[in-house]
């Protein structure tokens, strides 16, 4: 018998993710709202010591789940081994952070007087002209950050959609930089506690051994 589950407000956060992408297309400054998707998971991990954001409130995860499971857009096969390996996960996190750092650097350059570049970089390579965006009413660096950050968000959405289609719906979660970072923070915070619990708990022992690593 299927479990009766009552929908909660948090089950509709995929709408927020969609709104974010559409709003960014109409006004690039909405890209700044994406900082919420960046900061909230980190705050939850640092101060709450959990991945509650990933587990319940991630709009992107919900959207990928809907497209892959409900609309059956996913091939639903396990991702290849290399994609699941810690090397790839931490490597992708490093790459992502370097690209994020470069984006912050270009924002800094505009802050110090360099001209604003009205382009959104997709997949770290393709520079899309974004001339229709009017950012004349804010400081140029605010506009530059919006262009850069929207590129980061669009790129990760596209990569997530591609892996959703090719593999399982939430394959993006395996190497999502935010997920890797928050899990790392939780390991630093709770690793010892988790190991101790594993020795006395009645849970699956394979997990208990690995949880604190």
């Amino acid at each position: 018998m299927k479990k009766a589950t009552k929908k909660k407000w948090s089950d509709y956060l995929w709408i927020a993710e969609l709104c974010y992408l559409f709003l960014g297309l109409f006004n690039i400054l909405f890209a700044w709202l994406g900082m919420l998707f960046f900061c909230i998971p980190l705050f939850v991990a640092i101060f709450g010591g959990s991945k509650a954001y990933c587990n319940r409130y991630c709009g992107r995860g919900q959207l990928l789940g809907l497209l892959g499971e409900k609309l059956k857009l996913s091939r639903n096969v396990p991702p290849p081994k290399f994609l699941r390996s810690p090397w790839f996960r931490y490597g992708f996190l490093t790459f992502f952070m370097i690209m994020f750092g470069l984006m912050l650097f270009s924002t800094y350059r505009v802050f110090t007087g360099a001209p604003l570049s009205q382009t959104v970089t997709l997949l770290w390579v393709f520079k899309l002209p974004w001339q229709w965006a009017d950012v004349s009413f804010v400081a140029p660096w605010i506009g530059q950050f919006a262009f850069g950050f929207f590129g980061v968000m669009l790129t990760s959405t596209i990569v997530g959609l591609v892996t959703m289609v090719l593999f399982r719906p939430l394959s993006w979660c395996v190497y999502c930089p935010m997920g890797t970072m928050t899990q790392g923070i939780c390991k630093l915070r709770n690793g010892k506690k988790s190991k101790e619990y594993g020795r006395t708990g009645k849970e699956d022992s394979r997990t208990a051994e690995g949880a604190g690593q």
């Binding site: 939430l170 699956d204 394979r206 997990t207």
Partner: peptide, 20 residues
């Protein structure tokens, strides 16, 4: 039978949502 979780779990929570 029962489920057994490997040590490379990424704690995404997909499994918690589908467990009846």
């Amino acid at each position: 039978k029962m489920a057994s979780i490997g040590k490379e779990c990424v704690a995404c929570g997909c499994c918690t949502r589908v467990c009846p």
